[in-house]
Simulated assay, not measured.
Amino acid sequence: MRRSGKSKKSKKTRRVSAPIQVRFLKKKGLKTKESRRSIVDPAIEQQLKTFEEGVQNFHQQKYARAKPLFEKVLSGPGKDLADRARVHLRIIEQRMQRSEPIIPRTPEEHYQQGVAMMNMGRWDEAREHLLRARKLAPKADYVVYAMAALDCLTGEAESAMENLKLAIQLRPENRYHARNDEDFAFLQEDPRFTELLYPDRDGSGT
């Protein structure tokens, strides 16, 4: 077969320089590491973090904590986050207006309020609620146990021993709770306390 006199030209591979490659990637919608870093706005990140913290408190019904967080989001650069924070603020204001202070009526409610006051170090208010709970439910071992703990925290050793002994009589399991309860640290050196919590020990201390 007769070959043509024209030689077939070899196809050369086109080399693309680095700047052109970057432009090509951007044209295709891809981002280099440098472009991704430049898009991140620290102010937006902080605003989003504050918003998420506010939402977490909102779902836990901690409206007093969530409100200032959402108010802080309003001053951020992200309009969408600010709009969403504004919606949450309206809901919080409505719920806080509707919420009224709960007046304890049952033994359990007085007990819970008493324990809450104990945790805040408000001893007089704690004692008031626990006494009311005990009056309504004199055989409630958990109320008597809480009274013993309160007596111990306020340095009333004799009353603490009496209440703890009664709490154990009402419910023997309270003996084991008291062994690891830090509220009774005041009685740790009292031999009566040891005898009450460890009745099976002999005089040798074993």
Rank of each mutant, 00 (worst) to 15 (best):
R2E: 14
K8Y: 05
K9Q: 15
K9I: 13
S10P: 08
K11M: 07
K12G: 05
K12L: 09
T13W: 04
R14Y: 10
R14F: 12
V16L: 14
S17L: 06
I20S: 15
I20P: 12
Q21D: 11
Q21E: 15
R23W: 07
F24W: 10
F24S: 13
K26I: 02
K27R: 15
I39K: 00
I39D: 01
E45L: 03
Q47G: 01
L48N: 02
K49S: 03
K49C: 02
F51E: 05
E52Y: 02
E53H: 06
G54I: 00
V55T: 00
V55S: 01
V55A: 01
N57C: 01
N57F: 00
N57P: 00
F58L: 01
H59N: 14
Q61T: 02
Y63F: 01
A66D: 02
K67I: 00
F70D: 00
F70N: 00
S75I: 14
P77Q: 11
P77H: 05
D80A: 14
L81S: 07
D83V: 11
D83Q: 14
R84D: 07
R84F: 00
A85F: 00
A85Y: 00
R86L: 03
H88N: 11
R90F: 02
I92Q: 00
I92E: 01
E93I: 00
R95F: 01
R95C: 02
Q97Y: 04
Q97R: 08
S99A: 15
P101T: 03
I102M: 08
I102Q: 05
T106M: 07
E108V: 08
H110L: 04
Q112Y: 10
Q113I: 01
G114M: 05
A116F: 12
M118T: 08
N119S: 13
N119C: 11
G121W: 01
R122N: 10
R122E: 12
D124C: 09
A126R: 04
R127W: 10
E128S: 14
L130W: 04
L130N: 02
R132T: 04
K135A: 10
K135M: 12
L136P: 01
P138W: 10
P138F: 11
K139G: 12
A140P: 11
A140D: 11
Y142N: 14
A146R: 08
A149P: 07
C152W: 09
C152E: 08
T154I: 09
G155V: 03
E156S: 12
A160C: 09
M161I: 09
E162V: 15
E162Y: 15
A167N: 05
Q169G: 05
Q169D: 14
L170W: 06
P172Y: 11
R175C: 05
Y176Q: 14
H177D: 14
A178Y: 05
N180W: 09
E182Q: 13
F184Q: 14
F184W: 10
P191Q: 04
P191G: 10
T194Y: 01
T194P: 03
Y198E: 11
Y198G: 04
Y198F: 02
P199Y: 02
D200L: 12
D200F: 05
D200W: 02
R201Y: 07
R201N: 09
D202E: 15
D202T: 13
G205E: 06
T206M: 15
